[in-house]
């Protein structure tokens, strides 16, 4: 697909970066304010989709984005499982279990570095959801994948 008019391009160039930063903020502050991994990941994906829609992509870009977003999605899932398994492994015999929170007392409540493994899980979920939405969009909106002349 080709790009849109210059008006849309200028607006998208201004706004997409802010949307991306806002998504990262929502992910990182998920344990303190409304939001979290699901919302933040979807916002990050929305920013990337906006820039892709405004500027257009070629078939090679679509293929490389599809591959890299699949890799990001798998790594997000593995990171989430790793946090879960750490709760099982890191504690003494019998004290840990799957998805045990790592050191919830660490840090003062209400600050950014607190709540143990919840921010780590938020980051993993954010990567996973964002990459999933982006790869679905790339496949659904690409021209070369299905209408093969």
């Amino acid at each position: 697909m080709s790009g849109m008019t210059p008006i849309v391009k200028v607006i998208a160039r201004t706004v997409a970066g802010f949307i991306f930063v806002y998504g990262c903020y929502i992910i990182l502050y998920g344990h303190l304010s409304p939001g979290g991994g699901f919302a933040g990941g979807a916002i990050v994906a929305a920013g990337l989709i906006l820039s892709r829609l405004a500027f257009g992509t070629s078939a090679a870009q679509e293929r490389s984005t599809s591959i890299s977003s699949s890799i990001f999605e798998s790594s997000g899932g593995i990171l989430f499982l790793l946090v879960a398994v750490l709760g099982l492994v890191i504690f003494a015999q019998g004290a840990g279990f799957f998805f045990k929170n790592l050191f919830p007392e660490f840090g003062k409540g209400g600050t950014l570095v607190s709540a143990g493994s919840i921010p780590l899980s938020n980051i993993a979920i954010g990567i996973k959801v964002g990459a999933a939405m982006l790869s679905i969009f790339v496949v659904l909106a690409s021209t070369k994948y299905i209408f093969k002349e």
Partner: peptide, 17 residues
């Protein structure tokens, strides 16, 4: 509901594909 919303979008995308 938070998880259910995201699952719903995945299912919708699968039906669309």
């Amino acid at each position: 509901v938070l998880t259910s919303i995201v699952i719903g979008l995945g299912v919708t995308a699968f039906m669309l594909s």
